[in-house]
Design a protein around this nucleic acid. Structure first.
Ligand SMILES: NC(=O)c1ccc[n+]([C@@H]2O[C@H](COP(=O)([O-])OP(=O)(O)OC[C@H]3O[C@@H](n4cnc5c(N)ncnc54)[C@H](O)[C@@H]3O)[C@@H](O)[C@H]2O)c1
Ligand SMILES: NC(=O)c1ccc[n+]([C@@H]2O[C@H](COP(=O)([O-])OP(=O)(O)OC[C@H]3O[C@@H](n4cnc5c(N)ncnc54)[C@H](O)[C@@H]3O)[C@@H](O)[C@H]2O)c1
Lengths: 207, 207
DNA sequence: CGCCCACTGTTAAACATTTCACAAATAGCA
DNA sequence: TGCTATTTGTGAAATGTTTAACAGTGGGCG
């Protein structure tokens, strides 16, 4: 087993898991079959899986149920994760009402905003709290994952409070790149930049 | 100028542009200063920019206004792009009401849903149309970019219709990987997978 | 029990991207 | 004009990732 895991291998693991979910009724699946289901090469499937351990049986393939258990254990999706949401605007509200996350073990347990018109409202069973209560609430609940869906202006300050409260992983939707220490994992979802990537592709293709 | 541009250089270009916007009041900026503003190395800034041309002046740096113009021209954000939105649910509604895209030259010009309760409603000045009208409307307006925010089940069919209608670039939020021909650029925003990446990080860090 | 087959795990090669280090270029100034 | 300070642009090296090829392993079967 190599000891350096490419960052891109982790989301592929999630996709292999989804493919396994579609493979009901069989006991074993080969890297070739997983390749067809995911559009990654069979070599990459095997390589990716060996980054994390040895799960296959030569001559048979991978035991589907065993591999599923292994992947959820590696990703940590066998546990339940409590999530704090900061910024209950258009996007935050959509995220709050999305039921898909709970199926993966992610549960929004508290939500915060700085706008008095939003504080106190109850959405999807969650009462929106004032951002001044963020630190205390996150510490009390020992929340480790936060979603930031505030305006760009508020985002860095919110991220600082989250880190000070012990949050170790942040999904940020605001169009800035917040500064975080190396011990905190930050993922930025920057939709304007994604659209610009598409515009670049179109511009390049058509002259 | 090398002829192979790393895919990752394109979103970095967007980030350099943002940094330039923050650099008002100066005429020139060095790769070192851009490095500080973006947290990429100065060497990477210079290398990235030379992928697309020669914009700097040795001894002085990059002319800020000129570089801004160059970047928007490369990305295509100097033009206006009409966007079609398919799936006006929680997420689609949030995207529709987001004003930030228009500032970058992206304008949602039509929206579609298959749910009778949504068809005919007007949101943000856009009347939600039946998906059966998708092909005709997209062809008539010559839309090149589409956002897919339907349920997972509907997404592949919607993508097929979009491609048949001439759409060349798609931003997909449904948790599947639609099949598209190589001539179409597809970007997937898969929030469950992003959360799983965070869970992996937390699991790995804490044992 | 031993052979064959199918498929994994892995070594090595190919490919891609980033970093390093410096020659070449320009501005500014005496 | 010639010299110096500065900063670009870019070969070359280092690093990282993917693909290819196959040796080795285990299971099934005669
Ligand atoms: N809505 C979209 O489709 C979309 C698309 C791309 C990017 N974004 C980004 O996502 C973020 C949220 O977008 P939105 O459309 O929901 O915006 P929004 O204005 O509807 O909501 C932002 C919310 O954050 C709250 N907020 C601001 N500062 C805060 C703070 N310090 N603490 C707590 N709450 C605070 C505001 O009160 C508001 O309720 C923005 O940064 C936006 O740029 C959104
Ligand atoms: N809301 C979120 O925060 C969130 C988070 C992660 C992923 N997603 C994904 O984004 C997508 C949209 O999420 P949502 O919360 O808005 O869901 P939603 O159920 O609120 O909205 C989906 C909309 O798509 C429409 N639709 C379904 N099939 C269609 C078709 N064939 N043509 C046109 N419209 C069709 C539905 O009528 C509905 O209005 C889903 O695939 C979801 O898995 C959403």
């Amino acid at each position: 087993m190599l000891n350096k895991i490419p960052q891109a291998a982790v989301p592929r693991l999630s996709l292999y898991y989804r493919a396994l979910l579609e493979s009901r009724g069989k006991d074993y699946i080969s890297s070739e079959e997983l390749s067809k289901l995911t559009n990654f090469t069979a070599a990459q499937v095997r390589r990716d899986l060996t980054y994390f351990g040895q799960f296959g049986t030569p001559g048979k393939g991978y035991a589907i149920e065993g591999l599923k258990k292994a992947i959820v254990s590696i990703l940590g999706t066998d546990k339940n994760w409590d999530v704090a949401l900061v910024g209950v605007g258009n996007l935050g509200t959509a995220l709050l009402s999305y039921r898909g996350f709970e199926q993966q073990g992610f549960r929004v347990v508290c939500a915060f905003d700085s706008d008095l018109r939003k504080i106190g409202k109850t959405l999807e069973g969650i009462k929106v709290q004032d951002t001044t209560e963020l630190e205390a609430a996150v510490k009390a609940k020992n929340v480790q994952i936060a979603i930031v869906a505030t305006s760009a202006e508020g985002a860095q300050k919110v991220v600082d409070i989250l880190i000070g409260s012990g949050v170790k992983a942040i999904l940020n939707f605001a169009p800035i790149r917040p500064h975080v220490p190396p011990s905190v994992n930050l993922l930025n979802i920057d939709l304007s930049i994604e659209l610009e990537r598409l515009a670049y592709f179109l511009t390049k293709s058509s002259g």
